[in-house]
């Protein structure tokens, strides 16, 4: 992977913003461990955001710290034992003081306990919120995957592997073509991130004579998590190709920028 391209993609800025998925966060984290220049870049982005956000602070926030600290030490011993004077030594005085003392201690204890419980409830509520978010995310991810599996298992699906070409032999893609509903599902996971101002364009090809028909551009390539795209294809395609084109796409494919191509095996 080209590290400069990776840095220039803007993913690190979104990482600091907290706008990436859990999986992407882990990927960035691994990149940071692997490449010092990625780590360095993240630190710089973060430092600029720390300065910028701090500039919007309306007053000195250091002044709030003492009260936060004291809230965290709620359990500090606050009850003081009141000494009983020996001179008034009637048992009624003693028992009166003792009763008052016990009641006092019990009261302080109860108040403390109540505060602790309130604090605990808050902690549990926060944890609940976090868990709920995770469950929701997991559910929607699962639904998406189930949906995909159902599509790929359909018996009308034809699989067409697209091979990498000269420009990038490592690149690959796969087309799953449902001839019944005239849709293709393009798995473009194996394509590199397109450079700025460029976009991948998908073509349906007839072989003799070679006639390309555009199926459209992958405008949201960078932001699509699973990199699987559903594209309508009413054509009687004999092959599929993917080229890199200027943003907005081209009328005809730029053959020097042909990334992958694959022929439909047994057209039935």
């Amino acid at each position: 992977m080209d590290i400069n391209e990776y840095i220039a993609s803007g993913i690190l800025e979104l990482y600091v913003a907290g706008a990436l998925s859990e999986k992407e966060n882990e990927e960035v984290h691994n990149m940071m461990l692997q490449y010092p220049e990625v780590h360095e870049e993240v630190l710089k982005i973060e430092s600029s955001i720390v300065s910028l956000t701090a500039a919007a602070s309306p007053s000195d926030s250091k002044q709030f710290f003492p009260s936060i600290k004291s809230k965290l030490h709620l359990q500090d011993e606050t009850s003081k034992v009141i000494p009983i004077k020996r001179s008034r030594s009637s048992w009624i005085t003693y028992s009166g003081w003792a009763a008052a003392l016990i009641a006092g201690i019990a009261l302080i204890y109860t108040v403390n306990e109540l505060d602790n419980l309130k604090e605990e409830i808050q902690v549990v509520e926060t944890n609940n919120d976090i868990l709920e978010e995770q469950i929701e995310k997991a559910n929607s991810d699962l639904a998406e995957v189930k949906n995909l599996v159902a599509i790929l298992r359909d018996k009308n699906i034809i699989t067409v592997p697209l091979q990498g070409q000269q420009i990038n032999p490592e690149a690959y893609a796969k087309v799953y073509w449902n001839r019944k509903d005239d849709n293709i599902y393009l798995d473009a996971q194996g394509l590199p991130e397109p450079p700025r101002g460029k976009v991948y364009q998908v073509w349906s090809l007839k072989m003799s004579p070679l006639t390309p028909t555009s199926l459209g551009t992958l405008d949201d390539f960078s932001t699509d998590d699973n990199k699987i795209f559903r594209i309508a294809n009413p054509n009687d395609s004999e092959a599929f190709g993917i080229t890199l084109e200027p943003a907005g796409g081209s009328e005809t494919p730029t053959m020097e920028q042909l990334f992958t191509i694959g022929v439909v095996a047994a057209a039935s």
């Binding site: 859990e22 966060n25 882990e26 809230k71 965290l72 902690v123 926060t126 976090i130």
Partner: peptide, 20 residues
């Protein structure tokens, strides 16, 4: 900051920057 203190365990550098 109270929440951060009480939920400190839930942070992991794998999930992102501490600042984030």
């Amino acid at each position: 900051f109270l929440k951060a203190w009480h939920n400190a365990d839930s942070y992991s550098s794998k999930k992102g920057r501490f600042f984030t």
